[in-house]
Every structure is written in structure tokens, then in C-alpha cells.
Design a protein around this nucleic acid. Structure first.
Lengths: 152, 152
DNA sequence: GGCAAACTGTTTGTGCACCAACTATTGGTA
DNA sequence: TACCAATAGTTGGTGCACAAACAGTTTGCC
């Protein structure tokens, strides 16, 4: 009877900190996001707030539940985040007349205008990382694979 | 005079949410770490606490500053985290007699014993992800590259 | 029409993550 | 010796991230 082969059998210490993929992911995410901080701070945005703005610059209005699916943050995280964006004057939150449960998030003029500043960010990050766009796209492809694997 | 070519010139919308590497990193890190939660929860550990334990299972004692460098968390994050690990009975924090400023973190017997449970985690994660170890190692290699790029 | 279930977003509690300010100790130096 | 700067860790404040409990609204169904 064929038994499943241990996939980690060739590895000397499976608990070695510096070869944990989860550790690499956590550090990489924090390191890259840290590069955004000085660019976002003058705009008054945190990185998750920036992701929400990206979603809204693509499509608007969005309900909280749609935003939640798009930026992959749960409603409990988004709720106070959206209030802060509203306090900044970048968005408005308005109840739907037809369904008082749902909340439509729309950009203000100020929020729409912010996109011009944001356009400088991706090239600045790529330049700062000093990696080829091909390499970044390859990394991105592999990240999508692991996301798919983790969430199925 | 040769001008530097815009590396993003071939991309249709540089602000598209779903092609931001930072977004992929954030989602991938959260998705993968989420897989650890049900495995760590019975051990009474969060993921960052697990990383600290991995570091200590490799080497002990470690000062807070050494731990900070190893797990890449700042002392302000580690300080309360270590207190929680101590409250759980997995570690002890003891002041160095020769230098009262520094704090030596050591494992308790309970903390050392926890390693046996932890050994089940890496194979469980790899099986759950259902990705080849080669593919995971290739991802890890690329993560180290982007960490190096972001932190230099 | 009335009610139970489903749905939408909010609130609360715990624990990071980061930053800036702080305390205590140590080491060098005038 | 007295002081000053550097070092080690702690504290407090803001903002995620996640889970569970919650409140209000809508829908389906009798």
C-alpha cells in the first residue's frame, strides 16, 4: 500500500525561523509597506486606506461589503477606517434609500483629486526597490498562487 | 542626453488595485498566517508569538534586542508580547546581573516542551497549501530578494 | 399581516505594528 | 568625580486585523 511521502523529509530543520515562508511573507509585506509610509503620510493616508482609495478610484460607489471583498478586509476593520477617510474629507458614506442597511461609499471632490498625487507612488516604489518590473510581476504571480492555495 | 526610461510605461493602469505587489504581499501574508491560527490557537500562541518561540528554540538565551533583530519586530512590539508569553509560562525574562539594562529571555520547561507540538505545524501547513515544496522554496527565495531590496 | 431568518454594517475586546517619548543603566571623558 | 552621550527596554498613542456579539433592516413564508 503506497503511503504519502513526507514532503519535508529532505529538510534539515523544518522549524528553522529563517526558512519559514510565513515569516518571509510577514517581513516582506511589512518591509514593502514601510516604503509607502513616507509617500502616503503627506497625503494623510495609511496603507490600508490607500488600498481602499485605489478600489474607489476604479469604481464608485461601492458598498462596504463590496469594498470588503475587493480589499480583502473584513467589515469590522473597514468600518472605522472609512470613518477616518470621511473625517479626512476623502469620501462620503451615505445610506441607500432603497435598502437602509447598506452604505454607499463615494469619493468627494477632494478624494478624486488625490488620485493625481497617487499616480506618483507606483513609479517611486519601483524605483526605490530597484527591481525589474518583470521580476516584480513574477513575484506577484507567485503571490496570487499562494493566495489561491491558502483560500481554497 | 539619455533619459531614464519609465519602467511602468508598458502598464495600462499603474494604480489598478489587483496588480499592486504591496496588495498581493499583504493579502498573501494574512491568508497564509490565517492557516496557522487554528493550529496555534490550541497551543495558546499567536503567529508573532510562534515566531519568537521558533527563535528561542534555535538559540537561548536571547536578549530583547537580539530577538528584535531575529524576528524583525521592534522592541516596543516585543515588550508586551514577551510579557504575554511569560504569563503563559513559556518563557522567563530575567535581568542580566552584569548589565541591568538588558533582559535575557529564556525558555521554561513548558516552553521547551511546546516544541514537540510545534513540529507538527510545518508539515500540516504544507499539506493544507497543497503546493510543492520546490514552489514554496522558490517563493521564499523571491521574498528574500524583495526584503533585501526594500531594506537596503 | 406577522414573524422568523437572513443580511448589512457597527461595536467591543484582544493583540499586533509602528513611532515617539521616557526611564534606567552604563561607559567614556574632561 | 561629575557629567554627557549612548544603550536597553518600557510606555502610551494611533491604527489595523480578526472574532464575536450586536442592532437595524429586509425578505420569505405562513
Amino acid at each position: 500500500m503506497p503511503t504519502k511521502k513526507d514532503p519535508l523529509s529532505g529538510i534539515e530543520n523544518p522549524l528553522a525561523l529563517d526558512q519559514q515562508v510565513c515569516f518571509g511573507l510577514a517581513v516582506a509585506a511589512r518591509s514593502v509597506i514601510a516604503l509607502y509610509r513616507p509617500l502616503l503620510e503627506p497625503m494623510g493616508l495609511t496603507h490600508p486606506q490607500y488600498l481602499v482609495m485605489l478600489a474607489l478610484w476604479e469604481e464608485e460607489p461601492l458598498r462596504v461589503s463590496e469594498l470588503s471583498r475587493k480589499v480583502q478586509l473584513d467589515p469590522g476593520t473597514l468600518s472605522p477606517l472609512l470613518k477616518r477617510l470621511e473625517a479626512q474629507g476623502y469620501i462620503r458614506r451615505e445610506r441607500n434609500k432603497l435598502d437602509e442597511r447598506s452604505l454607499a461609499v463615494v469619493l468627494t471632490e477632494r478624494g478624486r483629486a488625490l488620485r493625481d498625487d497617487a499616480e506618483k507612488i507606483p513609479p517611486a516604489i519601483v524605483e526605490r526597490l530597484d527591481m525589474s518590473v518583470d521580476e516584480l510581476m513574477e513575484l506577484h504571480r507567485r503571490l496570487l498562487e499562494v493566495i489561491a492555495a491558502a483560500t481554497r
